[in-house]
Nucleic acid binder design. Sequence first.
RNA 1: GGUGAGGUGGCCGAGCGGCUGAAGGCGCUCCCCUGCUAAGGGAGUAUAGGGUUUAUAGCCCUAUCGAGGGUUCGAAUCCCUCCCUCACCGCCA
Length: 433
Amino acid sequence: MLDAKHFREGIEETAALLQRRGFTLDVASLQALEVRRKELQVRTETLQNERNTRSKSIGQAKARGEDIEPLLAEVGSLGDQLEVAKNELQSVQNELQAIIAGVPNIPVAEVPLGADETENVEVSTFGEPTQFEFIAKDHVDIAEDLNNGLDFAMAAKLTGARFVVMKGGIARMHRALTQFMLDLHSEQHGYAETYVPYLVNHDSLHGTGQLPKFGKDLFHVDGESQDQVALSLIPTAEVPLTNMARDEIFDEAELPIKLTAHTPCFRSEAGSHGRDTRGLIRQHQFDKVELVQLVKPEDSMQALEDLTGHAEQVLQLLNLPYRKVLLCTGDMGFGACKTYDLEVWLPAQNTYREISSCSNMGDFQARRMQARFRRKGAKKPELLHTLNGSGLAVGRTLVAVLENYQQADGSVVVPEVLRPYMGGVEVLTPSKG
RNA sequence: GGUGAGGUGGCCGAGCGGCUGAAGGCGCUCCCCUGCUAAGGGAGUAUAGGGUUUAUAGCCCUAUCGAGGGUUCGAAUCCCUCCCUCACCGCCA
């Protein structure tokens, strides 16, 4: 959510900045609503003031033992007027809120102008795209030859499309990747390992921006009755981790707060039918190790560089070729003001695919969440800045390892950093029989 | 799931329907006093929104005592619903 000031003073400039990312702000509606809001709010508060003053004098008169009847008569119609004014104000504020809640964050100046992912800017690359002297298989075929380690048919029986059952060495490698990432971030990068709920309430989803706009991308769990709180499965650990700061006021000295968690993520992938239907790339359920930072505003741009670097470390230690991309205005997420994507090389697709997305949300989420901190000696608390990034998506990392470490005989070499997590196994081989 | 207790400011803790944005204490900040320490005296110490304003300064107003509704001229205080916390019992990974 943007500061309301953006819609009061200099709304034209705000509209222009938003237009860069392809969002058209309804300036006329907003201005009209804002005029009415101001008028109604002043009227409502004036009426409230009047009622309070009069009620107080009634109390005083009564205490003096005077006749109250005439005073009561005077107040008679006030209540009704107030009622009407309050209701009108409420509905105008609801309308305003509805518009403002749907407005995305403003990209920072250095974000390149562009319409979609084709206009993202490559910032750097690591390694060379892997070359093979044989015809590279994709991870689905590799796994099939490794004792059917990725069993999509079984998952379809149990649940449906876009789920997977992992087995044997591949399941173990999946777990090893998770452990490796968590240990790296908590031991080397200073993140506090955290365990969080996989179901969250709607306040949390609103706080990080999934609601009200993107509810269709989530899996919802109904309460037993209408009155009960509805919960949703988390689409990313960003939601519980970042919402830990909701309605909090931190001391300046407590910042930065750096958190990491491993969770499954659940996404309905509404609107993605037909894309990446084969394999692990796009699933309804996948695991991810998430990085979240809560920082002072002046630190958030550097924090984004740091956080992205932490995610890159995972790829570098796994020795997976990747490139780092600065997203253009048109490809950025709703709440982000700057985003880097990390794209890992997938030989079978002969291309780079997203494996991590690291964003600085600025104060956009913090404003929705009322996540604040107080500078030493300062009276007023300030909104802090939130950042998050995948460090990394575990399923896609598994895909990358299988495809980049495959050998001509169908076996897959286990990257060295994973071996301690796999009982020293150095290579995954198809066992006959 | 059952029974009971309870949700008030950074924390603890009062609070007859009106003079309570909220006693008292702790903590914190500033000042005074005391040679240091300890003790003591005084003042201050919530958040959000709006109006005014060059102003994130002042000033004025409004809202907030778990949330939402209701009764009333007036609700922290009365009524209803929900949420949450704690204790004991039951069940259970």
